[in-house]
Design a protein around this nucleic acid. Structure first.
Length: 606
RNA sequence: GGGACCGUAGUUCAACUGGUUAGAGCACCGCCCUGUCACGGCGGAAGUUGCGGGUUCGAAUCCCGUCGGUCCCGCCA
């Protein structure tokens, strides 16, 4: 139907005859001559319809509406010098139309305009309802092309590294741990249920046992949890697993993969290797396991200085097993008023949202005089004061904010304030030129954390992560005692405060695997019922293996500069997990339910 | 499960403290216009103010409920 794409035409095509297809982006009817901006997936070009070319052609051109689908035959010619449009890639030329055919007219008014010239922001509700139109707009088509390019780059890279792409089941079994499963009733196996995979975790490990050695997949994952701007009920992971590689080798390969993606998508050469920071140091210095290192304001632990002072809020926090930490805001005396850090102020509110009961502060004045509430000032002697200012790296003009109490809350509070103030004080460069990409690996995660509600240990990543061998010791009999406190051979890739992906070396020793399942509270029976096939497989020549998975949607979001992964997904769902276009989920017939041996217990007043 | 914000013409927004017939740009329809490119000019049509109830002489505006969207906490790695 066509000989060329609109956006690829240029002066070298002058005098040649072309046949183009696409959408009418916009028309300018001057009564005599008519200009049509024709758009296809490659770009736009101006079509000129002169009355001399015949009245039928002209009449058709007059009738065109925006978004009419047309096919034109015409000759490429240079524009008159005064009519050259430098804003347009094809602005030096135009097509003189000889023939114009309407392939599909517009029969219904469009809910919004597609043209790039229309810059008005649209309600997302509308964009999602008419997603097929939204995709026709430049923003979404650009994002989808970027997504494609990113996946293509990953495929090429992994191909060259000897990986093969293997698909794993979408219908699988429900397993404990992790997120809520989406369930699918089985018609054939009455009363039984499939679950959609939260990730291909176990399958990819079994591919390793299957001798695949290097696997990857652009894998759809499903989690039935509440949505956020960076969370969808179905999302995509770039999922990988490899045999006979140690942690360093895996990290090295993956940062080269990320670098190749950033090179093609952004033209940026990332500096390798990425910094590696232990989980412990990370929590100490940033209060979070995914720190944004584009700015300072690191957390300082001042517990030891403060534990004996008379200010009870501080000393009691330390004595009851918690801590006192602080962050120093350079020049904070100027930029942050007392109103903002006292109850009701924006900074205080941020602290409160993290669970802090108060927000103590010290302002450093000239000659290192301190300005704070009496209860702190009166209880600090001169040497404590000096030590404190040193530890906080505070100078005259600076503001120090404190978190005191349970260490977890203190970390959460100061992390939140740190992030809030970085945005607030403009410490993060927003313009494209000074964009900073601070990648880092967080390593040495603990194996488990305590779940208060369920009163048991829980795997931080998942229960297949291999523990650090030196933490476990050689004596296999003491595994059970040492496991709860050992570190995992797990790693997360963090970029500018966001987790891009993570993984671990896996357990390939069946006894160790059993021991870990026992540690998270599974009985022997439960273990073999849920994971028997995995443990069995580990007994039959499972190679040492490990892997990781990247959140592909999130990576595209960062590369495209969008704030939501919805803008990287062709057909995403709303926060209520609805598809406004297809109107899913929807009701099904009683017959369908009956075949599946299920009945809905839902009532209106639920 | 909880908190916050939002919903007005096809669309993006406006409408003061509750007070005339709910306005404007773009889109749409009609007419005019031969070099525009977000073309221009003249005219026109277009509204269950998401929905339901309440307060009031009077509600887009205030209150309650409900539906939908967004952000966040919980949840989720």
């Amino acid at each position: 139907m066509r000989s060329k794409y609109c956006g690829n035409l240029g002066i070298k095509h002058i005098d040649s005859e072309v046949q183009l297809c696409g959408w009418v982006d916009r028309c300018r009817d001057h009564g005599g001559v008519i200009f049509i901006d024709l758009r296809d997936s490659s770009g736009t070009i101006q079509i000129t319809v002169d009355p001399e070319q015949g009245s039928a052609l002209f009449k058709t051109a007059e009738s065109l509406k925006n978004e009419t689908v047309i096919q034109i035959v015409g000759t490429v010619r240079s524009r008159p010098a005064e009519s050259i449009n430098n804003k347009l890639k094809t602005g030096e030329i135009e097509i003189s139309a000889k023939c114009l055919k309407i392939l599909n007219p517009i029969l219904s008014n469009l809910p919004f305009t597609i043209s790039i010239h229309d810059e008005e922001p649209l309600k997302e509700e509308l964009r999602l309802k008419y997603r097929y139109l939204d995709l026709r707009r430049e923003r979404m088509s650009k994002n989808l092309k970027l997504r494609h390019k990113t996946i293509q780059t990953a495929r090429n890279f992994l191909e060259n590294e000897g990986f093969i792409e293997v698909e794993t089941p979408i219908l699988t079994r429900s397993t404990p741990e992790g997120a809520r499963d989406f369930l699918v009733p089985s018609r054939v196996c009455e009363g039984e249920w499939f679950a959609l995979p939260q990730s291909p975790q176990i399958f990819k490990q079994l591919l390793m046992v299957g001798g695949i050695e290097r696997y990857y997949q652009i894998a759809r994952c499903f989690r039935d949890e509440d949505l956020r701007s960076d969370r969808q009920p179905e999302f995509t992971q770039l999922d990988m697993e490899m045999s006979f590689m140690n942690q360093e080798e895996i990290l090295d390969l993956n940062e080269r993969l990320i670098a190749s993606i950033w090179k093609t998508a952004k033209g940026i050469d990332l500096q390798l290797p990425f910094p590696r920071i232990s989980w412990e140091e990370c929590m100490n210095s940033y209060g979070t396991d995914r720190p944004d290192t584009r700015y300072g304001m690191k957390l300082q632990n001042v517990s030891s200085i403060i534990k004996e002072i008379g200010f009870k809020v501080f000393s009691n926090a330390v004595k009851s097993g918690g801590s006192v930490k602080c962050i120093t805001i350079k020049g904070g005396n100027q930029t942050i008023s007392n109103v903002r850090i006292k109850p009701g102020g924006d900074v205080f509110n941020e602290a409160a949202k993290a669970g802090a009961k108060g927000l103590a502060f010290i302002r450093v004045r000239d000659n290192n005089e301190i300005d704070t509430i009496g209860a702190i000032k009166d209880n600090l002697n001169n040497s404590q004061k000096i030590e404190l200012l040193q530890k906080a790296k505070a100078n005259p003009g600076d503001l120090i904010l404190f978190g005191a109490g349970e260490t977890e809350i203190v970390n959460k509070t100061l992390d939140r304030i740190r992030q809030y103030l970085a945005k607030e004080l403009g410490l993060i460069p927003l313009d494209k030129e000074s964009e900073v990409w601070n990648f880092l690996w967080v390593i040495d995660f603990p194996m488990f954390e305590f779940n208060k509600e369920e009163n048991r240990l829980e795997a931080i990543h998942h229960p297949f992560c291999a523990p650090n061998e030196s933490d476990l010791g050689a004596n296999t009999k003491s595994w059970g005692d040492k496991l709860p406190k050992s570190r995992a051979q797990a790693y997360d890739l963090v970029l500018n405060g966001l987790e891009l992906g993570g993984g671990s070396l896996r357990i390939h020793n069946p006894n160790l695997q059993k021991e870990v399942l026992k540690t998270i509270g599974l009985s022997e029976n439960e273990s073999s019922e849920q994971f028997g096939f995995l443990i069995e497989a580990l007994k039959m020549g499972a190679p040492p293996h490990g892997g990781l998975a990247f959140g592909l949607d999130r990576i595209i979001m960062l590369l495209s500069g969008e704030d939501s992964i919805r803008d990287t997904i062709a057909f995403p769902k709303t926060q209520q997990a609805r598809c406004l276009m297809a109107q899913a989920p929807n009701n099904v017939s009683d017959k369908q339910l009956k075949e599946l041996h299920i009945a809905s217990t839902w009532t209106n007043d639920e």
